[in-house]
């Protein structure tokens, strides 16, 4: 069997085995669904609640993608500003780190109170979690220019703008793409965290709110179904950004 097929089917086989084992344990020991639902219970709940779950997924995905977009735009802009001078980086970087190390879950209630529109508040929370890898990776990428090429540009008296556009930005692309991959997952985490906080405050939105509601109603299979959709979304985001990364960096890899 070709190596590519093996690498595709091996994790699938592990997953199927895990589900069978889980189903078997629930069946043999008669574990009630409110304690630990079997995969079949979760699947049943998923299909019977597909409309509200898909609606919730749409909401979570909107927040996630909007936060990712805002993170990319602002993260790259901040990195461009920081790279202009070591003094600017030294002056501002501690605040960027401060933003990263402050738990957003603690800030979220405040943000939700301050920002009146729920959707906007959720995007702000998710952005605060997702933006750091973009800033950090883009900054490192902009600084990790091949010294030989930098000397070449200097020798040819290239302007600052030409050096940024033709050397620094393309050099930073691999690290930016790695940052994007990390941020896509974090944007989802941020969206779910923000939805939890908003949900406990009574603002309904997204899959996290579905989990909260299912918990209140002791509908554990539905809770797992919502969790399954979050996991699947995270996986899809990771695969999408991974594909974009491969596509963008295709020519730099030895084929």
């Amino acid at each position: 069997m070709p190596a590519r097929l093996i690498s595709l089917f091996a994790p699938l086989a592990v997953g199927v085995l895990f589900l069978l084992l889980w189903q078997g344990i629930c069946y043999i020991w008669h574990i009630p669904p409110y304690l630990m639902p079997a995969p079949s219970d979760i699947a049943h709940s998923l299909f019977s609640n597909i409309n509200p779950l898909c609606h919730a997924l749409y909401s979570t995905l909107t927040v996630t993608l909007a936060a990712l977009l805002v993170s990319v735009v602002f993260g790259v802009l901040v990195a461009f500003v920081l790279v202009q001078h070591p003094l600017i980086e030294r002056s501002l970087m501690p605040y960027v780190v401060l933003m990263q190390v402050t738990p957003v879950v603690a800030l979220a209630p405040l943000i939700i109170i301050l920002v009146k529109t729920t959707l906007l508040a959720l995007i702000v929370c998710a952005t605060l979690i997702a933006i750091f890898p973009i800033i950090s990776n883009t900054l490192q990428g902009l600084k990790s220019v091949d010294p030989g090429l930098a000397a070449f540009f200097k020798m040819h008296k290239a302007s600052r703008l030409k050096t940024l556009l033709r050397l620094q930005i393309p050099s930073a692309l691999p690290m930016f793409m790695a940052g994007l991959q990390i941020s896509s997952g974090l944007a989802l985490v941020g969206a779910v965290v923000a939805e939890f906080v908003a949900g406990t405050g009574g603002n309904s939105a997204g899959l996290a709110y579905e989990i909260l509601q299912a918990g209140f109603q002791m509908d554990i299979p539905r809770m797992f179904a919502a969790l399954f959709m979050i996991t699947l979304t995270g996986l899809a985001l990771y695969m999408a950004t991974s594909s974009i990364r491969k596509l963008v960096l295709y020519n730099r890899i030895q084929h």
Partner: peptide, 25 residues
């Protein structure tokens, strides 16, 4: 100047790499 390493732009074709100093001018 020819450096110790080729110092080419991995994101550009050979043609664009060679054209670089003229583009910069």
């Amino acid at each position: 100047f020819v450096f110790q390493e080729p110092t080419l732009m991995p994101w550009s074709t050979v043609r664009k790499n060679v054209r670089l100093p003229l583009d910069l001018e």
